[in-house]
Design a binder for these strands. Structure first.
Length: 565
RNA sequence: GCCCCUGUAGCUCAGUUGGAUAGAGCAGCGGCCUCCGGAGCCGCGUGCACCCGUUCGAGUCGGGUCAGGGGUACCA
């Protein structure tokens, strides 16, 4: 909590007899900066004192005396408003940022704790579509945020490399596959086969049964099935890595669902030993009716396992391996029932840590215009989106800054940043309408706007040409915009923490937009570098702090901050 | 049928634990310096799906209605 709030809480508690905790919960920030920096609403006191809140505020404001940190106290309606000593506030914030550099916003709260994040997790033999963007970038942002908060973070790519679908792909490949075609474009070929399988199954329903048989053989370690599966997996991974490299995203472990195959029997035995399992309609299930949940299926009638079994096994494995404080699953909301079942079974198995498993869910990406016109099935490839965005960035650079040195690198940073930001900026639980025009927009509330502001701040520092110092006249930062900027900077660490608690990277996006738009307004109105050396020195320290904070915020989202663009 | 999520301006979205006149961006129209980067800035807007309730106070909490999406035993 800020020193200023502490001070205010102290003052009020002395005068009113309310507890500090209670007051802390009530202190708020007024909607208009002109009213003050902090406010205390007097409604709660009106019952106790049997007086109108307006009257109480008036009397309270008279009794409270200004201090070193709080320079003005006044009543407006039912609120007591506080104005902090601007110079002190500026000094506290700017000196700290100067000191911490681009680690500003870090915290110790995660020290000694491990968080496991399961994210991205594409299915092999299927194209990496735009639909996989959300889990990938949200997971990566959470990784960076928790790391900043002091946690050990383990990134897990739980590849979808197991399940009945591979029986289908194997069978389809055996029937219609072509080696040469496969090597040319592995995923597209496999995906075509998969689509064709579903088309042909309508006319020959027997294929379905045959495919299940192939998955069963795979699960039993059959040589031919395993060989094909391995081949599909290797080539798919190679293509995924291309996308991960573009996004600059990595993983600490990529075991995939298949990895847990050998532990599956153990899990089932354990569940049976607890007396939780039963046979129903020829399948092995855990009945969850008394918890208002549908049964959790462990084994199909043909004895093959299901994804719930694999997720339960994986959860136990992860806890044994990492002794996590939290285990996150960044997976679409379509699977929320599935996770409720899995977590419930873990709880019934007696694992107390089941409560530390969190489904970090998110809405769908839907399509409006382009979906039907996309040639490759009904999928928009993530790689295509990234490439288009980079291409647009190139074009704009050619137009606005053709002299730029490392154009290609900057075009990548900007183009990819735009795509990441466009996704992260919307709150997780909302569905996103994928719209080319919106993703490929570099104006307004976008990554390029933030990056542009950052580049502008860098440019100012180059132009200034002298080292920025913390020995300045802090009282010189006196305009409304400077004041607002100081508060936004002060609030940044709290925002990062809150973002972690809510698993909601969008909070950082909007904070960055606030910082940038406020600065740009300031920049437009006021000259930064002038004849007035004291004022210039003060403003340059602010510029430096903003630049560093924006860079820090972007890096938490997995977005680069070029110095020129 | 039952369960979950969503419903704020023409479009896309903010609005942290209920609080002082509900905010941005995009698109449209009109402007901006002797220009520190115009990927910028400024101006133009009577909108919280609907109805009840709780409260001094509801976009925010509770109940109901309507609309959209998702899930609901052998896919993941």
């Amino acid at each position: 909590m800020s020193k200023f709030v502490e001070e205010i809480v102290g003052l009020i508690s002395k005068e009113t007899g309310l507890s500090k905790v209670e007051i802390t919960g009530l202190v708020e920030v007024p909607p208009d900066q002109k009213l003050g920096d902090y406010a205390f609403p007097c409604f709660v006191l009106s019952k106790k004192l049997k007086k109108a809140p307006n009257q109480i505020a008036g009397e309270l404001a008279l009794r409270l005396k200004a201090t070193d940190l709080i320079e003005e106290i006044s009543a407006v309606g039912p609120y007591v408003n506080f104005r902090v000593d601007r110079a002190k506030q500026a000094e506290l914030v700017l000196a700290r940022i100067f000191d911490e550099g681009d680690r500003y916003g870090s915290d110790e709260c995660g020290k000694g704790k491990t968080i496991v994040i399961d994210f991205s997790s594409p299915n092999i033999a299927k194209p990496f579509g735009i639909g996989h963007l959300r889990t990938t970038v949200i997971g990566n942002a959470l990784f960076r945020i928790f790391r900043r908060l002091g946690y050990e973070v383990v990134r897990i790519n739980h590849l979808g490399d197991w399940g009945t679908q591979f029986g289908k792909v194997i069978l389809a490949y055996k029937m219609w596959g072509d080696e040469e075609e496969f090597l040319k474009d592995p995923i597209a070929t496999l995906y075509d086969l998969y689509v064709r399988f579903h088309r042909e199954v309508d006319e020959e329903p027997g294929l379905e049964e045959e495919a299940r048989g192939w998955f069963k053989r795979l699960e039993d370690g059959d040589e031919e099935a395993t060989g094909l599966w391995k081949k599909f997996r290797d080539y798919s991974l190679r293509e995924f890595n291309r996308v991960y490299e573009m996004l600059d995203i990595g993983f600490d472990s990529c075991p995939g669902e298949s990895f847990y195959n050998e532990f599956m029997d153990q899990t089932i035995e354990q569940i049976e030993a607890k007396g939780l399992a039963e046979i129903s309609q020829d399948a092995l299930i855990v009945d969850l009716e008394q918890y208002d949940l549908p049964p959790c299926l462990l084994k199909k009638k043909d004895e093959a396992t299901l994804y719930a079994t694999r997720d339960i096994t994986a959860a136990i494995y992860r806890h044994d391996t990492y002794e996590f404080h939290k285990s996150l699953y960044v997976v679409g909301s379509a699977q929320s029932l599935h996770f409720r079942q899995v977590f419930k079974v873990l709880e019934l198995m007696g694992y107390k840590w089941a409560k530390d498993c969190v489904h970090v869910d998110f809405g769908w990406i839907k399509f409006r215009q382009e979906m039907m016109s996309t040639r490759k099935g009904n999928i928009v490839l993530l790689e295509d989106v990234l490439n288009k965005s980079i291409q647009l960035a190139r074009t704009i650079i050619e137009e606005k800054n053709p002299e730029l040195e490392n154009k290609e690198e900057v075009a990548k940073d900007v183009g990819i940043g735009a795509v990441i930001f466009a996704d992260l900026a919307t709150r997780r639980n909302k569905d996103i309408d994928f719209d080319w025009d919106q993703v490929l927009s570099f104006d307004g509330e976008t990554a390029p706007y933030v990056q542009y502001t950052h580049a502008r701040l860098c440019s100012l520092q180059r132009k200034y040409g002298r080292p920025v110092s913390i020995k300045i006249d802090y009282g010189a930062l006196s305009t409304d915009e400077e004041r607002a900027l100081l508060k936004l900077l002060e609030d940044f660490p709290r925002k990062v923490k809150f973002t972690g608690e809510a698993y909601e990277p969008a909070f950082i996006c909007s904070h960055l937009i606030d910082l940038c738009s406020t600065f740009n307004r300031f920049y437009q109105k006021q000259r930064i570098i002038t004849e007035d050396e004291d004022q210039t020195a003060a403003r340059m320290l602010l510029v430096r702090a903003l630049q560093v904070t924006i860079k820090s915020g972007l890096s938490l989202l997995g977005i680069k901050a070029p110095e020129r663009m």
